[in-house]
Structures are given as structure tokens and as C-alpha cells.
Amino acid sequence: MASKQFDIKTYAGFKGITLLCLVILYAPLIVVTVYSFNASQSLTNWEGVSLRWYADVFTGPESGKFKTAAKNSFIIAIIAATTATTIATLATTGMVRGGKFRFRTVSFGLISLPLMVPEIVLAVATLIFFNSIGFERGLLTILLAHIAFCIPFAYLPISARMQGIEDSYEQAALDLYATKRQAFTKILLPLMMPGIISGFLLAFIVSLDDFIITNFVKGAGVETLPTAIFGSVKQGIKPNIMAISTMLLSVSIVMVTISYFVSKSDNTK
């Protein structure tokens, strides 16, 4: 019986396609990582392992540009993710623990709006908006735009988490004469932590990675890592770009992995 069921579920070739899928997804990333350690000046020839392009990123002719861009990127990502996570945590509490109310669907629509509007359209709209109110473009415009589109990315894991937490814990605290504020900060927030951390990390990555919107709303001469990389790539792919890319993709993969394990951890027991 068991073997028959197994047989029904299996289709010849599906495993092969899945493996092909993984190869397509990972091959470009692996190739770039490998070639970032290439000792050769040229992109094509392999001349042995070396860290020269990593050294070039930190001390080479373009290092000043990249350092400033990296600093901008990380400052914006930290502030945008923190702000978006705070806003999203409060909004989740209102949506999931706020009972039924009239503007619930509208609120959910508003929160997911940045995901529905195509990125390039959101970029155009934000640029036009800042222009129309005479807001000079610079780091601040990038930050504000990032806070907005980070909110849904923070909201989704946080709200998934809160829906999984029964309210009996808070009710117990309230029965024991805790105030609502205490029930929130002492009971609900700690239980929510895995979702909040996961949401923060996703918002952080999304902000760190954004190119299109940043490219539109940044002022002249203000660069983040993606816009600096794009400017450099437009003149041809150079080995130092592969070193930077490898570092940036490692950051993303490490953070997503942390987010995955944190969100899986269960602290309600």
C-alpha cells in the first residue's frame, strides 16, 4: 500500500527539473563568488586564488566611493528597518488584536500597497511627490522612501507570528490585574520577538538591496551600495565589483538564514 502511494505521487523527471532549478538559481552566485577570488586582471582567465580584489575594494582607487556608499546603505537600512518594524508591530497589534472594525480591509490594502504597485511606478511617484512639495533630494528622501516600502515586509512575518499566539496569555495577565500596557509590553511583545526579529531582518535586507527607488529619489552625488555598483557595472563588469557583490550577498544570506531559524523557534512553550 505504502509503495503504491509513493508510486502515485512520483513523476519521472520532476526531481531532475528541481535539481536543474537549483543549478540555475545558484550557478550565477557561485560563479561570481569563485571569480571574486581570481588573481587575474582579466575576467576570463583563471590565474589562481587571491584576495587582491577584496584588497582593491578597501584600498583601491574606488575604495572611497564604496566606503561612503556602504556607510549610507547601512545607516539607511538600520533606521528604515527599525522604524518600519516599530510601525508594523503597532499596526499588527491593531489589526490582529483590535477586533472587527470597518476599515480593516482598507488598512490591510494600505499596508500591502507598496507590494502591489510596481517598483518603478512607486519610484516615479515618490520622486514626483518630493519634487512637488519642494523637498530637496538626498539621504533623507531615500530614508523616507525606504521606511514606506519596508513596512509590508516587516508586517507579514510579525502578523503571521501574532496570529499563532493565543490571547489566553494576555487574558491571564489581565485577570491578575495587569494593565493593558503591561500585558502588551510584558507578555505579548516578548512572545512576538521571533516575528519581530524576522520582520526587522527582512526589512533590513530589502532596504539594503533596493536599487530602483533609491536611484530615483537620491540626490546628485549621493550613493548607496546598489547605485554605486550599478554606476560601475554600466562601464563593464570589473573584478572588484565581484568582490563587493560576494560580500553583499553573504550579508543577505546570513541575515535570511538567521531570520529563518529565529522565526521557526517557538518560545510560547
Partner: peptide, 26 residues
């Protein structure tokens, strides 16, 4: 699985998200 533990505070909890997204997206 919604409850109404924080019904009274609902508007204040949602306000930051409403304001941010209304100004920066809508």
C-alpha cells in the same frame, strides 16, 4: 484568529502606519 484585547487602542496603534503610507505611498 482575531481578538479584541486592544480594541480601545486600535486607532492609535494603526495611526503611524496609516499616516506613513498615506503620505509616502498614496
Amino acid at each position: 484568529a482575531t481578538t479584541d484585547t486592544y480594541k480601545e487602542a486600535r486607532t492609535w496603534l494603526l495611526l503611524p502606519a496609516w499616516v506613513t503610507l498615506a503620505i509616502l505611498v498614496l
